[in-house]
Measured scan of single mutants.
Amino acid sequence: RRPMNAFMVWAKDERKRLAQQNPDLHNAELSKMLGKSWKALTLAEKRPFVEEAERLRVQHMQDHPNYK
């Protein structure tokens, strides 16, 4: 499986939080909310998630050198 990108790293915990706050929302609505929230973040706010995604990408390359 591919490593998570920055959005997916961020959305993993954010989706849980949103789902707890909005138990009646379907996954499609949660995804739309997550997309809008991600776009609203500044580059500085996204940076930790971008860095974690890069760390995961490098780790994935080391763990699976033949993955394409």
Rank of each mutant, 00 (worst) to 15 (best):
L18M: 09
L30E: 11
R55S: 05
R57V: 07
M61N: 13
D24H: 10
M8Y: 09
M33R: 11
A44Y: 15
Q20G: 10
P23W: 00
G35F: 06
R1D: 15
K68H: 00
W38I: 00
M33Y: 04
E45R: 01
A19R: 07
M61T: 12
E14N: 08
V50A: 10
H26A: 13
P65M: 09
A28G: 11
T42C: 03
M33W: 01
A44Q: 13
R17F: 06
R2M: 05
A40P: 01
N22W: 09
V9L: 14
R57K: 13
L25Q: 01
L18F: 02
E29A: 08
H60W: 12
N5P: 01
E54M: 03
L56M: 11
Q59D: 11
A6N: 00
P65Q: 14
V58G: 15
M61C: 13
L43A: 15
L41D: 01
L18Q: 00
R1T: 11
S31G: 14
M8F: 00
L43N: 10
W10P: 03
P23S: 06
K12G: 10
K39A: 13
L56P: 01
E45D: 12
F7V: 01
H60S: 13
F49K: 00
A40G: 08
N66V: 11
W38L: 02
K36A: 15
L18G: 01
D63W: 06
V50Q: 12
A53Y: 06
L18C: 06
P23L: 03
L56F: 06
R17G: 03
E29F: 00
W10C: 01
F49S: 03
L25W: 08
M61Q: 15
W38H: 00
A19G: 07
A44N: 07
H26L: 12
K12M: 12
V50H: 12
K39Q: 07
A19I: 08
T42W: 00
A28D: 10
E45N: 03
F7P: 01
V58S: 14
K36M: 09
G35K: 15
T42H: 01
L43M: 14
E14G: 00
A53F: 04
F7L: 00
K12W: 00
Q62Y: 12
K32I: 05
F7A: 01
A40C: 07
E29I: 07
Q62N: 15
K12D: 05
R17E: 02
Q20P: 00
L18D: 03
N22D: 06
P23K: 06
M33T: 06
L34T: 03
E14M: 05
V50N: 06
V50F: 11
N22E: 13
K46I: 01
W10T: 03
N66G: 14
V9Y: 03
Q59K: 09
P48G: 05
A53M: 00
D13P: 08
W38P: 02
E54S: 07
V50I: 10
S37P: 00
P23F: 08
L41T: 04
S37V: 09
D63E: 13
A28Q: 14
E29P: 10
A53R: 04
R47Y: 09
M61L: 13
D13W: 01
R17P: 00
P48C: 04
E45P: 00
W10F: 07
L56Q: 11
A53H: 02
M4K: 08
R55F: 03
R15N: 02
L43H: 15
R57A: 11
E54D: 09
E45A: 04
R47V: 09
K36T: 11
T42N: 08
K12L: 11
V9A: 06
V9E: 02
A53K: 03
K32P: 02
S31M: 15
E54Y: 07
N27W: 09
Y67T: 15
E54Q: 11
H60D: 12
H64I: 14
N22S: 09
K46S: 01
M61R: 13
M61I: 11
P65K: 15
K68C: 06
Q62P: 12
P65W: 10
M8K: 14
Y67L: 10
W38C: 03
M33F: 03
P23V: 05
R15H: 02
A53C: 08
K46R: 11
R17N: 01
M4G: 09
R17T: 03
H26N: 15
V9D: 05
E52S: 03
N5F: 02
L34S: 02
A6D: 01
D24C: 13
M8R: 09
L41G: 00
L41Y: 00
W10Y: 09
L41V: 00
